[in-house]
Design a protein around this nucleic acid. Sequence first.
RNA 1: GUGCCUUUAGCUCAGUCGGUAGAGCGCUUGAUUGUGGUUCAAGAAGUCAUGGGUUCAAUCCCCAUAAGGCACCCCA
Length: 415
Amino acid sequence: MIHAIKGTRDILPPSSTTWNRVEAVARRIFANYNYQEIRTPIFEETALFARGVGEETDIVSKEMYTWEDRDGTSLTLRPENTASVIRAYIEHRMDQIPGPKKLYYMGPMFRRERPQKGRYRQFFQIGSEVIGSESPATDAEVIEMVVAILTGCGVKDIHLIINSVGCKECRPGFNAALKEQLQSIKQHLCENCQRRAETNPLRVLDCKVPADQPYVEKLPSILDHLCQNCTNHFATVRQFLDDRQIGYEVRPRLVRGLDYYTRTTFEIVHGALGAQSSVMGGGRYDGLAESLGSKISSPGIGFSIGEDRLVMILEETGAAEPVSLDLYIAPMGDAALRHAGILARDLRLQQVSVEVGEGKLKRLMELANKANAKHTLILGDNEITAGTYALKNMTSGEQRSMTRSELVDHLTAKN
RNA sequence: GUGCCUUUAGCUCAGUCGGUAGAGCGCUUGAUUGUGGUUCAAGAAGUCAUGGGUUCAAUCCCCAUAAGGCACCCCA
């Protein structure tokens, strides 16, 4: 037996319906906010991710699917999409198009991690990028939009966390201050944190070991080390969020794993997800375009929603809607089957969803019920000679005899 | 990549203190002629994850591998 490889999976009905619904909601909301879709290749030159995401990040250093192409080029399956979008933006000189560029995408990403609930090697993201604006109003609109998408999909209990991680002016100073303080207290911390104190001091702030908390809490907050510009920027973002009455928690210890983030960072967590509690993460990346070779400054901000996790939340909280069918036709006999085929074709042309069965009536009624049909049409010799149809409402059990035009009106009115 | 747990019918799980297996749900068929969601009956379906070892004998014990889950790590 050949089966799906580790960390990948098949998305089957009825779950695929939820996936489609999520994507439809996202597309609709993106359109409302004047975003347009961008589709970039699934694989890129390895150098793009190494430079964009950061050579030292876990993603690049140990999680990428990388191979050598036949001409010797190193290629990589995309582990995220922001670097590709920026690459395309630069390559196609999209800076020449007036106004900020508002782009969205959805599709598979690949990271070779150990699979868990809510974590797959091929996983799907729905995300967006705004390039060419560093206005706090943009940050607020982006955050508002992502909340709208999740809410629109039916997610309850959205918990939004925001922070500012500073810019290239102020972050180095904070890092130095943090490192210095860690030197003095590090003997009191857990093994992990002692290691992080050297390799990635910001991560110590994220430590969950209870014994470490008294020390971690006394570490400096990035918010106290922001430069004036970043302080003002973050305060304005918060003000705009307050204007919109969007609830959030400022968590100075929210840190992000990708190197390119600057200033505003944000994340939405949900209790239904277990250890992989984050359903969406995002932030500003003002220096990314330059680090990928752009000659002109192109500040940007974006987010990505973990679609697998979003669907999981909807399924676990019962927010996934069952599929339903407008009409199930139960023909009895050859003449009825022919008649049913034509009737079904005509109704489908009028946007009525129709299934035609074949077999004994009792069996067809069962199938209609299992298909979650709203109505069943019973079609036999009696009906054909009389020129009427027997339409049964599967919820109430009521059955009515009607003419063809009454039938069409009845079914199309329900839509 | 590390540690721990799990793996028996399509699904959820029992079980044999080592003698090749069961339930519920689901599926198929039937309960006289054209009516579902309830009921009743019958039936199909499992090399008990894979490979090896111990044993007269392994689904059960041991080892390895794989997949899944949880924690770490990291992230969406």
